[in-house]
C-alpha cells in the first residue's frame, strides 16, 4: 500500500567492511535517517551508499541483480538471520517495515570457509557451480530429445521435483547452517532429478559425484538442525536432504557406480 503517512525510520547500520579477500575486515556503524518503511532492504543500502559517496567514502559492496527474489544474487546476514527475519524471502524482497525506528541492524556477509569474502558483503559462491558441474544435469545433447509427451510424469512427482528445482542458489542454507553445510542446495538438485524419469540413467552417479564434490569444497556436514530450511527463500524442504541420503545409500550399496570426483 502506498502510505505516505508512515513514519520514517532512523536506523543504525552496523555493516561488515572488508576491502579484499586477503584483508582484515571490521564492523562500521552508520547512521541512517528518513528511511521509508516501504523501501526494500537493498534500497536502504542504496541510500546508505549514496550517503557514503556524499561523504567521499567508498560504498558498501553487495551482490544483487534481479531484485525480485529469483536470481539468487543477493543475500546477507541481517541481525544474524540469513536474508533477514522473514521466511521464504530474499534480502531484496525484505522491506523496511519489518524494522522499528531506532533499531540497530547488523549486516554481515555469508560466512563459510567455502565462500571467501571478496569485498564487504560479497562472497565467492563458485563452489555451488562446481557442485552442479559434478552432476547436476541430465546428459542430453541438443537435438537428441524425443517428443516432450513421450515420458509421462505423474503430476505428484513433477510437483515434488519442482519443489526442489525452485532452489535459487543463493547460498542462504550454507550461511544459516552451523556447519556451513551445502546439503540443502545439493539435495534440491539431486531430489529434482531423482524424481523425474529423465534423471534415472545417471541417478546413482549423480548423487555420488555431487556429494563428493560438496565434501571436496570444504562444506560442513549436515547435522539435521534444519536451519537451512527455515532460511531458504525458495522454501526448499529438508525432505530433499532425506531423499539425497536415501539416494546416496542406494547408489553406494545397490549400484555399480562409484564417485569419479577425487576425494578431498
Amino acid at each position: 500500500m502506498i502510505s505516505p503517512g508512515k513514519k520514517k525510520l532512523k536506523l543504525t547500520i552496523r555493516v561488515w567492511r572488508q576491502k579484499g579477500s586477503n584483508e582484515r575486515g571490521q564492523f562500521r556503524d552508520y547512521l541512517l535517517q528518513g528511511i521509508s518503511p516501504d523501501m526494500s532492504f537493498l534500497e536502504m543500502l542504496d541510500i546508505l551508499n549514496e550517503q557514503l559517496l556524499d561523504h567521499g567514502e567508498e560504498p558498501v559492496a553487495f551482490d544483487h541483480d534481479c531484485r525480485e527474489g529469483i536470481c539468487g544474487a543477493c543475500g546477507v546476514m541481517i541481525n544474524g538471520q540469513a536474508h533477514g527475519p522473514d521466511n521464504e524471502t530474499t534480502t531484496c524482497q525484505l522491506h523496511m517495515r519489518r524494522f522499528q525506528d531506532g533499531d540497530t541492524i547488523v549486516i554481515e556477509p555469508w560466512r563459510a570457509s567455502a565462500f571467501p569474502v571478496l569485498r564487504d558483503l560479497i562472497v565467492d559462491r563458485s563452489p555451488l557451480d562446481r557442485i552442479m558441474q559434478a552432476g547436476g544435469y541430465v546428459s542430453v545433447n541438443t537435438g537428441q530429445a524425443p517428443d516432450g509427451n513421450c515420458l509421462p510424469v505423474p503430476r505428484h512427482d513433477q510437483e515434488s521435483a519442482m519443489d526442489g528445482a525452485a532452489c535459487i542458489g543463493c547460498g542462504a542454507c550454507v550461511a544459516a547452517c552451523k556447519n556451513a553445510s551445502a546439503m540443502l542446495f545439493t539435495s534440491a538438485k539431486v531430489s529434482q532429478l531423482a524424481q523425474l524419469p529423465q534423471g534415472q540413467p545417471e541417478r546413482a552417479q549423480r548423487v555420488l559425484n555431487m556429494v563428493a564434490q560438496m565434501d571436496a569444497e570444504g562444506f560442513g556436514s549436515c547435522t539435521n538442525t534444519y536451519e537451512c530450511e527455515a532460511a531458504c527463500p525458495a522454501g526448499v524442504s529438508i525432505s530433499h536432504i532425506a531423499r539425497l541420503n536415501r539416494e546416496y545409500v542406494k547408489a553406494s550399496f545397490c549400484s555399480t557406480a562409484e564417485p569419479t570426483i577425487p576425494m578431498k
Binding site: Y137, V138, V140, T142, G143, Q144, A145, P146, D147, G148, N149, L151, P152, V153, P154, R155, Q158, E159, A161, M162, A165, Q192, L193, L196, Q198, G199
Partner: peptide, 22 residues
Amino acid sequence: NNIIDQCVAQGVPFAREYGGLL
C-alpha cells in the same frame, strides 16, 4: 516444438496434467 522437447529431456519440471502429460 523442439525447444519443449529439449527442455523436457533436460528435466525441466513443466506443469503436468493428472495423466502425466504436459
